[in-house]
């Protein structure tokens, strides 16, 4: 099982919305069973980052850098560029 973590600043509502959108996109490709998506508070990243394969960020770019592939969650909020960003995430997961 691969893991995507999604974090937004402070609250969790935005990251959960993006997480569900990612889950739906994964389901469309039959990957729902092989990739899990977790919405977390930005302060929890250090705890979760070790077991995650991909980090989808909704907080400010450049706030902190992590050693795993990091992508923007914003396209999944605006709809603009969502397919491109999702394709990159799949490639990073080795599912592209």
């Amino acid at each position: 099982m691969k893991t995507i973590i999604v974090a937004c600043g402070g609250g969790i509502a935005t990251s959960q919305t993006v997480a569900v959108k990612l889950e739906n996109l994964l389901a469309d490709r039959g990957l729902r069973g092989s990739v899990s998506v977790e919405a977390i508070n930005i302060n929890s990243i250090p705890t979760y980052i070790k077991s995650a394969d991909v980090y989808v960020s909704i907080a400010q770019h450049g706030e902190a850098q992590y050693d795993i592939p990091t992508f923007s969650g914003i396209p999944f909020l605006t709809g603009m560029g969502a397919e491109d960003e999702f394709a990159k995430i799949l490639t990073a997961l080795g599912e592209g």
Binding site: G11, I12, A13, Q16, T17, V20, L77, T78, G79, A82
Partner: peptide, 18 residues
């Protein structure tokens, strides 16, 4: 409550890309 209205929030966010 941050989580109980999740479905509504998703619909709202979905609206922006529609």
């Amino acid at each position: 409550d941050a989580t109980s209205q999740l479905t509504t929030l998703q619909s709202l966010i979905g609206m922006f890309s529609d």
